[in-house]
Write a protein that binds this DNA or RNA. Structure first.
Lengths: 191, 191
DNA sequence: GCACGAATGTAGCGCTTGCTACAAGTCTTT
DNA sequence: AAAGACTTGTAGCAAGCGCTACATTCGTGC
């Protein structure tokens, strides 16, 4: 029952260890997926023991919730870096830029993980659903901010773009990138 | 090493057993997901033993491949039943009808399974990827056939509709149906 | 009627799962 | 220096995993 989540002392040593563990575990999960996210492999990746993971995080569910939050942040930061700044010149360019950025190979590990999160969310797991919804909201906000300045309904347009891009990513995942490409090209010229 | 996949004798008893097993296992997987698709639960659902499943299907991978094929067929048939026949009157109606049909509650079990399949496919599992691609192709064909008669580019329009609908379904899965609804409404009025 | 292969039950192997009991270290506080 | 809290290693539990060895039953062809 003793874990140090409420340890806020000045030394800061314990929170640092926690962060280091989370960083290492996040890297492991990105590479190997949720199905290999059991205590012993995670502990090995973090350079510690399953015993210590339970000690630090309480139980596996709490660990996964925290790890998911960490990964959501990491994903957000990766997006911030990959996505263009400012505003698009047209709706078509907005769609194109965002699709191009998020479908790039550097996001493949995140997307592979993403679909596992969606699968869990779809099965009713509230931890994953909450995390996933938060990521979508954040992404939607980003798309909205990238909408061209003259856009009459930036929120609606962003929702449209997001839905298309996510559909395209799913088609990528199952090897139907041709369909995704055609759909996006059509949507871009239509705008 | 003895299994009867090549047993084509007239009695037909063995293939029947195989079909019955697949039917029962498919129902179980639809209800409980892939994560509960290990040999013992599957065997229990099929009224037999893990020992017999291995005997009949060789190993788990072969079993899952066959089960996935069975489920893809079942999904197709469910779609055939749920989707309207004939042709839509407009692109907007086409999108609306297909979204309404495939987002209905009767497809929730299929969709929960679908995202698990997508997750596996995205991680590089070829069995799942092949199965998923086949389902997408079939669905795309269906959408194309439902396009209004006057449509200049039915194939392209169908790809567009499919991408939007799949994006909407993903947003449903993570509890963002509001975004999906708005995106579809916008796409429908735009058409 | 008997022999042979197909079909099936029982038991178990080696491995991984989340988690715990117990003991021993280390570090801080008094 | 003693005491207590924090931290960690070792060993293990009960359950589940895919799969197999062995023995038995069953139906059919000679």
């Amino acid at each position: 029952m003793t874990n140090q989540s409420d340890n806020l002392d000045v030394s800061g040593r314990v929170p640092l260890d926690r962060q280091a563990m989370l960083r290492a575990m996040a890297a492991h999960v990105l590479q190997h997926g949720l199905s290999d996210a059991s205590l012993r492999p995670l502990a090995k990746a973090a350079g510690t023991s399953d015993r210590m993971l339970i000690y630090h995080f309480g139980n596996k569910e709490a660990l996964m919730a925290e790890l998911l939050g960490y990964l959501a942040n990491a994903y957000s930061e990766a997006l911030d870096e990959a996505l263009p700044t400012g505003r698009a010149d047209s709706r078509g360019e907005c769609l194109y830029s965002i699709a191009a950025a998020t479908r790039g190979p550097q996001f493949a590990p995140y997307l592979a993980l993403w679909w596992q999160i969606v699968a869990e969310a779809s099965r009713g797991n509230e931890t994953y659903r909450t995390s996933a919804r938060e990521i979508m909201r954040r992404l939607l906000g980003w798309v909205e901010d990238f909408m061209p300045a003259g856009e009459a309904d930036p929120a609606g347009a962003a929702q449209h773009v997001l839905t298309l891009v996510e559909g395209a990513q799913m088609l990528d995942a199952v090897g139907c990138s041709d369909i995704a490409d055609a759909a996006l090209a059509r949507a871009i010229t239509a705008d």
